[in-house]
């Protein structure tokens, strides 16, 4: 995927920038406003995950096309501590930051496709896609 845009994530104000960028591309792809809001919410969750656990990283945005449908691909990448047990962090309610633990499982629920690649000490890359209806 050739990224259309990149937003560096270094602090909580970058979370707001990242979701605005996502909404912009969702609008460009002709997503209905509800889906654009759903995507912006998922971006917010993965961006906050970067701020909380890795402290800095990047979110890349791209467009995808499959069988006549347009999709918005979001890649959230960091070089933070990585995730030891991906199964555990994807359980709703699990959290090490004393939050609700809805972040990553919530983002997965909001998107059509969701993948995490991570190894302890090697950072985390989340790739998620929403397809236009």
């Amino acid at each position: 995927m050739e990224p259309e845009a990149r937003v560096p994530i270094k602090s909580d104000s970058d979370i707001v920038l990242a979701r605005a960028q996502g909404r912009l591309l969702a609008d460009e792809l002709g997503f209905p406003s509800t889906d654009a809001t759903v995507v912006a919410t998922a971006i917010s969750e993965v961006a906050r995950n970067i701020v909380q656990y890795a402290h800095h990283g990047e979110i890349m945005f791209g467009k995808a096309h499959r069988q006549g449908r347009s999709g918005l691909v979001i890649i959230a990448k960091d070089e933070g501590p990585g995730i030891e047990n991906i199964g555990l962090v994807m359980e709703p309610g699990y959290s090490t930051a004393n939050s609700l633990g809805l972040g990553l499982p919530g983002a997965k629920r909001l998107m059509d496709e969701f993948e995490i690649a991570s190894q302890p000490g090697q950072g985390t890359t989340i790739t998620m896609t929403k397809w236009a209806p």
Partner: peptide, 8 residues
């Protein structure tokens, strides 16, 4: 709608 989907 997003809140309900997210379970908030």
């Amino acid at each position: 709608i997003s809140m309900v989907q997210l379970g908030l």
